[in-house]
Amino acid sequence: MPPISRGFRGRRQTEVDPSRLPPGQYATNDFPVLSAGPTPHTPLDEWSFTLGGAVGEAKSWTWEEFVAMPSEVVTRDIHCVTKWSKFDTEWRGVPVDRLLEGTEPWGKYMVAWCDGGYTTNLPLADVVDGKAWVAYEYAGEPLDPEHGGPARLLVPHLYFWKSAKWVRGINLAEQDEPGFWESYGYHNYGDPWKEQRYWSD
């Protein structure tokens, strides 16, 4: 039994559907910003996206080619490891499935790499079958650099650090290698519904 914090009642969010809120989270209407370093500003004419690693011949897209691909608009709840959740966020992006079309990846893992040196690792199974996108619009507007623009990975079923900001490529790998936050104490997988926040969870 946890100790009772005498006199604590809290501000219960009665308007929030509890079935949408993972354990330990609270709902917010803000969009807080969390990053480890300065926000990179890569000009779009220098931006490219590369799919490589255990996937055969690498594929690469310029910004124009990337946004010319068929995209999807998806509305999802997102959950940050720092405990806020935000419901019904709307994104436009290219499904990772589409990037993988025509390839026969033999790696079961992937690493997203980003401007600023940030990386995050995921099982390939968590980014296929309509579970992940490379998103470049938020709420109908170009994605703000603070929030990861020009493009970020969107993997809404995992804690939001897995939705790497400023993403520039995906490398498929046969071995699972921890990414940036995963090397600094955060959980390797990060399922918010199992509250997998830290190494010991």
Binding site: P2, I4, S5, G10, K83
Partner: peptide, 16 residues
């Protein structure tokens, strides 16, 4: 650190 408060009825809230 993460701080978690628990109310008498078991309701909890966490912040860092």
């Amino acid at each position: 650190v993460d701080v978690r408060l628990t109310a008498e009825d078991g309701y909890q809230s966490e912040r860092s």
